[in-house]
Amino acid sequence: MQLFAQNNGVEMADSLRSNGKIYVVVICIVIILVGLLAYLFSIDKRLKKIEKENQISK
């Protein structure tokens, strides 16, 4: 199908990808996501601790 051909004149970030610079963006996004998710895990852990303490005091 012509629609999916690689060079059909539709502008894509091909050169950005061939330069390898897109990886910089990907790394940044992954760092942010990993950071936020790790933070979510640490909140979860602290919450677990509080839940345990609550159970004992009850």
């Binding site: 629609l3 539709v10 897109i22 990907v26 996004i29 992954v30 979510l40 895990f41």
Partner: peptide
Amino acid sequence: WKILGSVLVIYTAIAGLLLGVPHLPILNE
């Protein structure tokens, strides 16, 4: 399942930006 969710979301960020997509006018990237 929390780890699974995290892995999937991180995979999306990587694969979503790097894997091939159809070349369509207006939409582009």
